[in-house]
Structure formats: structure tokens, C-alpha cells
Design a protein around this nucleic acid. Structure first.
Lengths: 205, 205
DNA sequence: AACTTGTGTTTCTTATAGGAAACTTTTCAC
DNA sequence: GTGAAAAGTTTCCTATAAGAAACACAAGTT
């Protein structure tokens, strides 16, 4: 972690839990996001529904904004929420990598899918990649919707399949196609080719 | 007694963000997480460094906690931060999906790679999937390290390549292999086969 | 130069978050 | 049942967040 400027500019506050190493993280991120959008304090404030003075103070870490305010800002500025919470801790992947060779992942089977979990040694990672072989061959074998909080990306490695999600029409997919979706919607696959369909999933809660 | 002060007193704007349907989402989640841990208000408060009265009010949505307080709670209760931010709204992936057919992604080229960005219509997504064709064929063509905050997953679709990361030995990879790594470490690829190497990357900031 | 416009910062005031303690409810003992 | 201890809620007070307006400081414009 880099600490470019920890200046006495910030008021002579004392102890306080908020003075964590990355206490000025939030303001920096928000300013960065705002500038990236090319917005002024006025514009960003309006987009988020807050005053420009408030925003100025937040960006300069002169105030401890409420959660609501931060939420509005993250929405307006479309910034990634998890990183707002990052606090250097033990469960970090800093400087690490984890390799899984073809076919060497951790097996995990269900009636409808045969999963191979990838890169499972790195337990602190936030995304969960796995390769699945779709066993279901027709809709009758299709069990109930899968549904879990988060978002998911799917890429078809080989074969042909139909991808179902609530609120949408069935989606025929073939090698090289991909889809990104809210995994809170019910979803599932059925193989429609002669051979097994293989897909790569990356899941994020 | 519920929602004592959620009256139309609030500002004129139609899309007042605080008046979302899930305004009491936060309190519910926190209480749920606390009970899951089997903690009392006292215990949870102590773990997070806040008073039990404050926590009580937060759980009952009688207050709008500061971002700091929420951050401490998420840490103490180990709850997933993104879901605290979920709000039904336009820039949310709730109930959405985005398909990209093979070869139909958005092209983006660099001297060393040819990228095809996937599922770019869904701007609010948190993971960024793309397929890359590695142009570099020997180490001399290899430019400087790529390095960006976050984590990354890579899956070899076809071809052979060597994957480099700081602090590690070069990693020969072939079809079906995958690697997950801290993308803050310098990293990069060189194609080592006769044909172009194709990989799928999923990046998360 | 003075005037304007646009951007960010600093007062100043009011509403309210957050903690201590008082109060209420639940749980469990006997 | 009664009493005691524990868990949760509400009250009260102080510290402070958030917005309005004043202020500062540019970069044009005439």
C-alpha cells in the first residue's frame, strides 16, 4: 500500500479508529471517480443528490459521510463498492497467484452439472471460477432455477446449450458465446448438442 | 411502529434515492448477520467498536449510520459489502443479463494484445470479461509489466503461452489451464506456440 | 486593469448521529 | 407464580454531518 501524502494538513485529530492507515482512502477514491467522469463538484453533487460543499468536504476527508451519502455517490459515480471497504488485512491476495492445470480442478457434482472448481488454493479471492459440464440433455431433466446473490459471467468453451433465465427468452448458445447476468435471477442450462457442453463460469458475490 | 419519518417531507425530486423501496434493507441485513453469529447487541457492538444503543437503532432503521460505522460493522460481522449497496435502480444489474456472441465483442488493441471486450452493454457490472489474442511472440516483444489494482482470472482458450508475474517463475500454459492472481503484481503474456494464443480474462477491481 | 463566470473551499447554522444511562422486555432461575 | 439477570429499546445530551451562503481563486472577456 502506498501512502503518498500524510500531511499535517489534516486537522490535529488524535487516536480515533477512523485514523486507520487508509483513512483517506474514501475521499481519494471519490475524487478520482468524479474526475474520471469529468464532473465538477456541482455536477456530481447534483447527480448524487447532495450539496457541493458536502462533496468537497468528503473528498478532502474533512468529514465522515453517512452511509446513505456514500451509497448515493457510488451510484452516481458508478464506482465499485467493494474497494471502498478495503482495509489491509490478513485475508488478502496481495502478491499471490494460483494456477490450475487443465483437468486438475476440484470436482464437485450435482445431478445437472459436473463442476470443476479452479484455483481453489487461493481462498481469499473474490471471484469464483469453475468449469462445468452440462449433464442435462432436455428440459425435463432440468431441475429448479439456480439462484444466488451476486453476478455471474459464463463463457461457452465447447458444445451447444440453451441458457435460461427468468424474465428472458431461452438463449441458444454455442462455442465462444458469453453472457453476464444477475445471478439473483433464476438461471440454468440445458445441453442441446450431441456432445457435452462445457462452460466456464466466473461468479462474484 | 415502522418507518416513523419516511414522510413526503423529503425533497421535491422524484427520484429521491433515500426513498427507495429497500430503505430498510441495511438494518435487516445487519441484524441478520449479527444473529447468524449468535451475538447480542453488546457483543456485536464491542466487536465493531460501537455502542449497543447505536446498533439497536441501526438495526431498526431509526438512524442513518455513518459510512465509518457501517464499515466497522461489515468487518466485525464479516458481511459481504456489495449487497449493502443493492438498490433497485437503473444502473443496477438486478434482473438483467447481457449476451455477447462469439466474435461480436468490442475490439480494443494494444501492441501486445488484441482485446475483445465482452458484455459491454451492462455498464454496472463489477467483473470485466474479455478475450485476448496474444500478439507477442518472443520476450523481446514483451513490453513492460501490466499492473492494476484488483484481482484477475485467466483461462487459456487455445494456443500455448508463457505467463509472467513478478515474484514468480515464468509459467508455461496451454489450452484449459487457468490462473488467478493479484493484478497489482506486474504480469504479462508471450505466445509460445505456432498459432495465436487466445485467453479469456476476467478482471475485478 | 476591472468584470464575469465557473470551480473549489470555508464559514455558519440546523438537524441528527452516536453514546451513556434510564427504561422495558425477555429469559431463566427457584 | 416472584426475583434476578440479560437482552433490547428509548431518552437525553453532545458532537458533528450536511447544506446554504459567503469566500477565494482561478481563467476568460471586454
Amino acid at each position: 500500500m502506498e501512502r503518498p501524502d500524510m500531511d499535517p494538513v489534516s486537522q490535529s485529530s488524535e487516536d480515533d479508529i477512523t485514523n486507520t492507515p487508509d483513512a483517506d482512502h474514501l475521499g481519494k477514491m471519490i475524487r478520482e471517480a468524479r474526475l474520471k467522469k469529468g464532473w465538477t463538484l456541482e455536477e456530481a453533487g447534483k447527480a448524487a443528490g447532495i450539496g457541493r460543499s458536502t462533496l468537497s468536504k468528503i473528498e478532502n476527508n474533512q468529514t465522515r459521510p453517512s452511509f446513505d451519502i456514500v451509497r448515493r455517490l457510488t451510484k452516481a459515480l458508478e464506482l465499485k463498492t467493494p474497494q471502498l471497504f478495503v482495509q489491509s488485512g490478513p485475508s488478502d491476495i496481495s502478491g499471490r497467484r494460483d494456477v490450475t492445470l487443465a483437468g486438475q480442478g476440484e470436482s464437485q457434482d450435482t445431478p445437472t452439472y459436473s463442476h470443476e472448481l479452479l484455483c481453489t488454493e487461493l481462498t481469499s479471492k473474490r471471484m469464483f471460477p469453475y468449469i462445468s459440464t452440462i449433464k442435462a440433455r432436455d428440459v425435463s431433466e432440468f431441475e429448479s432455477w439456480i439462484r444466488h446473490r451476486g453476478e455471474e459471467f459464463m463463457f461457452v468453451i465447447s458444445g451447444e446449450l440453451t441458457f435460461f433465465t427468468e424474465h428472458y427468452k431461452p438463449l441458444p448458445m454455442k462455442e465462444g458465446d458469453s453472457v453476464y447476468y444477475d445471478s439473483g435471477m433464476g438461471h440454468g442450462c440445458v445441453s442441446t448438442g450431441k456432445e457435452d457442453a462445457k462452460v466456464l463460469w466466473v461468479s462474484l458475490e
